[in-house]
């Protein structure tokens, strides 16, 4: 039987396949080359919404096969339904590798599947490779990003969740039509014991923007007070960016946890990241080190954030930012 790499094609609340699926597809092409050109498959679990667009997106991403488990009962994510559908498919097709985006949904789903299948699962990986023995070598940060570990698995499927936005999507548009296998999963034997009663969406302002912002102006404890964060907001506004915060600032009540960046917050990869009054503990750095350009302003010239910075400025953000904001305003108006 040909080898197969299965990828969980997570869809968002509107039923659209999310970007991490495309990142995984691109990574899977590299893995496939080292694994006897293994077939790259997607598992989409859906109530049928947005199906044509999803098929198109999955084709462009270069999937060879798309399994579509479709039922009207699958509108909302359910750990119990989704895990059982994945398990049933895996038992049938026996993939070598099963990859899942390390979103909250992915990290909820994956351990239930791996535990039932008694296989290994490597969490929140930042790179994937196939070693000389043909095993999946999944690398991840541990100890708050202080140590990287490459982990292998001696059972099948070798499972991993992969952190979103770390691997790159492909620039290519694949033309080959994938083999589509659409089916109605058997849900009758599943004992559903969890029910979704309500969903309260985040206000667009905070959450969505920080994930997608090209410029992030981020503050830490050094921004001290409300006035400090107001300065950050002003700078973000003139630059058309978003405000982020370190855990220190969130713990001080200066910023909402929805904009916290770092290990226990979000991972961001903007074009420009401006860190103000952030010392740069590893827990913060793991959430922003993928930014294209990093500018850091800190009073302490030994602050570890300067190790990350393309441009480091030893100084007081409370003095530096007003001048900078004014200059950008003048330029915008001129």
């Amino acid at each position: 039987m040909a080898k197969e790499i299965l990828i969980y094609a997570q869809a968002n609340r509107s039923g659209k396949v999310i970007d991490v699926v495309l990142e995984l597809a691109n990574a899977a092409h590299d893995l496939s080359e080292k694994l006897e050109n293994a077939c790259i498959s997607a598992l989409l679990i859906t109530d049928g919404r947005n199906l044509d667009e999803n098929k198109h997106v999955l084709k462009k991403a270069g999937f060879n096969k798309v399994y579509i488990a479709s039922s009207e009962y699958l509108k909302d994510y359910s750990t119990e339904y989704y895990s059982q559908i994945a398990i049933d498919l895996i038992k049938k097709i026996e993939p070598e590798i099963f990859l899942i985006g390390a979103t909250t949904q992915g990290r909820d789903l994956a351990p239930v599947i791996s535990t039932k299948l008694k296989t290994g699962l490597t969490a929140d990986c930042t790179s994937l490779d196939i070693n000389e023995k043909g095993q999946l070598a999944a690398t991840r940060p541990t100890f708050g990003g202080n140590l990287m570990a490459t982990i292998l698995c001696k059972q099948f499927p070798q499972m991993a969740t992969v952190r979103p936005k770390v691997l790159k999507k492909s620039d290519k548009n694949y033309e080959q039509e994938p083999l589509i296998i659409e089916y109605s999963p058997d849900l009758s034997n599943i004992n559903k014991r969890v029910e979704l009663l309500d969903f309260i969406a985040n206000p667009q302002l905070t959450d969505k923007r920080i994930d997608e912002a090209e410029i992030i102006v981020s503050g830490g404890k050094g921004m001290k007070n409300e006035a400090g964060f107001k300065l950050l907001q002003e700078l973000a506004d003139v630059l058309g960016g978003s405000v982020g915060a370190s855990r220190g600032a969130v713990d001080m009540g200066l910023a909402d946890s929805s904009i916290q960046i770092g290990q226990t917050g979000k991972t961001v990869v903007p074009k420009i990241y401006i860190a103000c009054g952030i010392s740069g503990a590893v827990q913060h750095v793991v959430g922003m080190s993928g930014s294209d350009k990093i500018i850091a302003i800190n009073k302490d010239e030994n602050a570890p954030i300067f190790k990350q910075a393309d441009l480091g400025i030893v100084g007081d953000a409370f003095e530096i930012l007003p001048n900078l904001i004014q200059k950008i305003r003048d330029k915008n108006n001129g």
Partner: peptide
């Protein structure tokens, strides 16, 4: 089923200006 094959410190970024 899983085991660590290698552990290493992350590369430190080349500091800028």
């Amino acid at each position: 089923p899983t085991y660590v094959s290698k552990a290493f410190r992350p590369e430190e970024k080349q500091s800028g200006e």
